[in-house]
């Protein structure tokens, strides 16, 4: 690995600056799909712009992005298609405005999901993070807005967080391009399979629900032995999610 020390990136010795090319809207022939998910107003579109060089609308207003946007970048000769999703509070509701994000994370089968969270409001953001981790095990947490967290005297133990969640955590300030190189490097390692995550699974589920979920997961896994998110499907079936039921019928999970 050629390591040029760049001023913007002194801390991350692995990042290969020359290997990065922002591709803008060109997303043909990509090798990997990367999704950007997270609560509203956490800086997803800002991260997206930093990675692709595009000018997606950003704004200090929850719900700024309403349809998904695509862009691309190339890193170490691999091409990535990046998908900016509207912010959501949860993947479990059925409201239409959250549909785009929900469907893409579940059915778009991204190779890596970048979960952008607000470091100042970690607890509330974890609601969505934990749900996404039930669905996919190829995820990275982008702990955005670190500059504000610092100003507000919020300190986060990144290593413990990463251990608890079972996925890599990258602190960042997307607006000032801080943490972006590390994020790219981490994305590439997860995409290529160099880094393997072991994500957190929701624990404190009441007994009666856990029992029902177990019964269902067993049945689902019997039918689809290679499925990794049978528990999530069980959750959704118990909720009566029409989309999931249809997808199951059509075998879209295999």
């Amino acid at each position: 690995m050629e390591t040029k020390i760049q001023s913007a990136c002194e801390t991350c010795e692995h990042f290969n600056r020359d290997g990065l090319k922002k591709l803008g809207v060109r997303t043909d022939n990509f090798d990997f799909v990367v999704a950007l998910a997270g609560n509203p107003n956490t800086g997803k579109s800002t991260v997206f712009n930093a990675l692709t060089g595009l000018r997606q609308h950003t704004g200090n207003w929850p719900g700024k992005t309403v349809t998904r946007a695509e862009g691309g970048f190339e890193y170490n000769t691999k091409k990535y298609k990046l998908v900016d999703l509207p912010g959501t509070y949860s993947l479990m509701s059925t409201s239409e405005d959250e549909e785009a994000a929900r469907d893409f994370i579940l059915f778009g089968k991204p190779d890596v999901t970048v979960i952008v969270v607000d470091a100042n409001r970690l607890e509330r953001n974890l609601n969505l993070v934990l749900q996404i981790l039930e669905i996919t095990d190829k995820a990275v947490l982008c702990l955005n807005l670190m500059d504000e967290a610092k100003r507000n005297d919020v300190e986060i133990d990144v290593r413990t967080l990463s251990r608890d969640l079972g996925i890599p955590v990258v602190p960042a300030s997307a607006r000032f391009n801080r943490g972006i190189p590390e994020l790219i490097q981490t994305i590439s390692e997860i995409a290529s399979g160099k880094m393997v995550c072991k994500p957190h699974r929701i624990k404190s589920v009441p007994e009666n629900i856990e029992k029902a979920v177990k019964t269902l997961t067993v049945e689902i896994e019997k039918e689809f032995p290679n499925i990794s998110n049978s528990r999530w499907i069980a959750f959704r079936l118990l909720e009566g999610d029409k989309k999931i039921i249809e997808a199951l019928r059509k075998g879209e999970f295999v």
Binding site: Y89, S90, M92, S93, T94, S95, R124, N127
Partner: peptide
């Protein structure tokens, strides 16, 4: 329904 879920999602 939806409004209950939304309240829960909001914390």
């Amino acid at each position: 329904g939806e409004s209950r879920r939304r309240l829960l999602d909001l914390g």
